[in-house]
Amino acid sequence: MGELVGTSPCAGVLPLTIGDVQAVEVELGHLTSIAPFAGQATAASVALEAAHGMPLPKANCTTGKEGARAIWFGRDMALLAGPTCDPAVAKHAALTDQSDAWAAVTLSGPSAEDVLARLVPVDLRSVSFKRGHTARTLLKHMNGSVTRLGPESFLILVFRSMARTLAHDLKEAMEAVAARG
């Protein structure tokens, strides 16, 4: 018997292009949740910056850039996406490997905002949700994370087990938006 074979969460259900919007699964690399211990937020941020070049993000924000991004991920928690988290950070924060826990999808195109307006109960228009802003919120019925990557581009994370539902919900919303022409 050969090696164990890895399967991506959205295999078989993405990509999708409908109208002017594309939904594409992305490989973010390692995902590590970083939860600084009591009173250690600054130290953890310093350690993270020293190792990976970006501090811990403030609430509802991201730091870093494509390839190495820290996404605010909830109360006292950030998600490092990209590199394996440097063990030096572990002195100040609980590190948990979540590389396989999330389905990661980018939604992009001129109508991406309109598609998300059908799924997310948060104002994601560029006036209030700027590049680098992130929200822990709902995608229809699913808990998830939404980050604005650019003027017409968002990163969506939902539980891996719900990847198929995400694809379904995106598809319906994309179809409805596209049909408006």
Partner: peptide
């Protein structure tokens, strides 16, 4: 209590 916890249900098969 200085404790941090997170769900890893989805991480592991």
């Amino acid at each position: 209590l200085d404790v941090r916890f997170t769900s890893v249900t989805e991480q592991w098969a």
